[in-house]
Design a protein around this nucleic acid. Sequence first.
DNA 1: TCCTTGTTTTCCATATCGTGGAAAACTCTT
DNA 2: AAGAGTTTTCCACGATATGGAAAACAAGGA
Lengths: 267, 267
Amino acid sequence: MTDMASEKTGGVQAVSRALGLLKRLGAATEGQRVSDLAVQAGLAVSTTHRLLTTLEHSGFAHFEPTTSKWHVGHEAFAVGASYVQKRSYVAPALTYLRRLRDETRETANLGHLDDGHLVTLSQVESREIMRAISPPGGRVPATCSAMGKALLATWPDAQIAEFCDRHGFPTMTPRSVDGLSALMDQITHIRAQGYAVDNEEHARGLRCLAAPVWGPDGDAVCAISVSAMMMRLTGEMTEVVARRVVTAASELTEKIGGKRAEWPLPT
Amino acid sequence: MTDMASEKTGGVQAVSRALGLLKRLGAATEGQRVSDLAVQAGLAVSTTHRLLTTLEHSGFAHFEPTTSKWHVGHEAFAVGASYVQKRSYVAPALTYLRRLRDETRETANLGHLDDGHLVTLSQVESREIMRAISPPGGRVPATCSAMGKALLATWPDAQIAEFCDRHGFPTMTPRSVDGLSALMDQITHIRAQGYAVDNEEHARGLRCLAAPVWGPDGDAVCAISVSAMMMRLTGEMTEVVARRVVTAASELTEKIGGKRAEWPLPT
DNA sequence: TCCTTGTTTTCCATATCGTGGAAAACTCTT
DNA sequence: AAGAGTTTTCCACGATATGGAAAACAAGGA
């Protein structure tokens, strides 16, 4: 992550730089020192220090004097929390995610589309040793994600094509979907079976199964998935787990007063 | 909330302004229009627009073209999520919060101290109609909160006094603790009974009961509370619920490998 | 349909404001 | 106590953010 926020600012320099620092604070597992952040971001130490101080005055960063390290501040948390609070399906989803995790013993996820990417909104982790690949807040190109594909599959074909025009086919592994016809093949399957599959298209060795959740106005608003190491999710297990994912998604749909629209018909 | 981020910037102007806009986006329940944000923040429309564009380039804000409103972006969520991910007790706490909510039918909360304030980290809402007063990300002066007082009570008296010197006694209702001697009286009670009480000290009509959770190094790291309308949490109920809160806190302490230190002795 | 009104977005000259070097104040080590 | 590696403050320079005004939209209203 050496040059995370590249050099393209695209706006007010000072603000871009400050936000870049904030991202670094969030991405780092530990507190960061001024001078380290400065070299990482390619900024002068004094500039870095001034920007951090400004972030701190607004509560977005926090300086720990005893260790002289910088951390993400409470205000960043507050603003971030509002991102999920405004999506009223997140809170009720937890019940179903938990049950899904308990039934399958694997990680259950909730995500939605945001600007061509699937953003993980919430997750209930497997008790197995594996760490989560994509923690809450994580982003993956929609076409590299089971949840993303499940949601795309609810769109009319024309909109899917337009989507792909705009966002292309970023790939994360050699098995990621690449090209519209390959995607549409999958979409057809997804619509037929009611759930989407991701076989190492996001990360090596990882398989995901996802189903969409509908909102009151008949649009899919989010998706539920189970993700697991492929070795733990093989053959006939797949179908069993998929049915449970579909069930959870249906129940959440009902809970939030959603109307399960028909899947778009192949045109 | 007319002039939220006052005029004292205390750092890089452009950055303070941008963060102020971000806070407004987070605080608003709906998307905000450029011109409204501009007047709220007292900025020129063109400046506001440029700052928002910069926020968008980094993913911290998002513009909905169909409605031409601005929202909090995914990156803000990602950074905010890291605030809780780094506190390893949040995830395991959910189990106990949920049970507490089910046992008491009231809202269960998890919070910790951050710069003199109690920050609500997580919460499992009551199924009653009442909305939560302080959603995740919310901040209250420590002395106006049951969780805050429960945590302060684990500190040596000298540090409590120092804390009060630094932060004073901001009050949120007429019943909020005001003055060191009043606080120390309460601290004594808290240490004796093992839990803290907040009787309308944070919000009119609201009562909270809280107990601290210890970490592996013998310091209290967070607190668990139950908050409810006073009318639903009266008389003998209080003691019953308080015992459940204490139990939940003890269990979480154990779960995270915490060592329950002795409460500081009155000096 | 073509104005009218209320937006959002772009442009640009001005001087404000952020910048980074260098020096000063700290903090730990040796 | 002195030294190395920090963090923090200061300052003159000029790059850069600023806000007015105008241009591009969008949404009614006649």
